[in-house]
């Protein structure tokens, strides 16, 4: 377990723009140019109308906690416990997973309002969510 490096995304020809935007601390998602449907995870075609045409649209990064888990049992050397993972329903986009950064004593709950923040890592900056009133 000690030798296992921290996981990071390996962008490919479909997902590179998603991760490139995050290098600039921007959260962007695909929206179909033909029918307007948003989609995530990244994929070449619109699941609603099968169009290959899409735009990358910026998200406000604000949303609410749809579900979460507090991890107590360490299973990967890169992630010391405890830590909280939230599944956030963005106000203008899909649900996405990231870690929660909350002040000590502030407990997580479904419905909690959050906004995106950024943490830099050697391979790829990653979004985290912080409480937002």
């Amino acid at each position: 377990m000690e030798q296992l490096p921290r996981p990071h995304p390996r962008p490919d020809r479909d997902t590179s723009p998603y991760w490139e935007a995050q290098r600039a601390h921007e959260l962007k998602f695909q929206r179909c140019s033909d029918c307007g449907e948003s989609r995530f995870p990244v994929t070449p075609t619109c699941p609603a109308c099968r169009s290959f045409d899409f735009e990358w649209t910026s998200s406000s990064g604000r949303g609410t906690v749809y579900s979460y888990t507090v991890v107590h049992h360490q299973t990967h050397p890169a992630f010391g416990v405890p830590y909280t993972i939230v599944l956030v329903e963005l106000e203008d986009g899909p649900r996405m997973v990231a870690q929660l950064r909350a002040p000590d004593g502030e407990s997580v709950g479904i419905g909690m309002h959050v906004r995106v923040d950024w943490e830099d890592h050697p391979e790829q900056p990653l979004p985290v969510f912080v409480p937002h009133s």
Partner: peptide
Amino acid sequence: GLSSMGGGLGGWMQYYLPHGLVTPAQ
């Protein structure tokens, strides 16, 4: 029950594992 995945990940894993959501239980 232990994660065996590290380094650069593609596919569905790239959206979850970099955040520390790394095992089936999680």
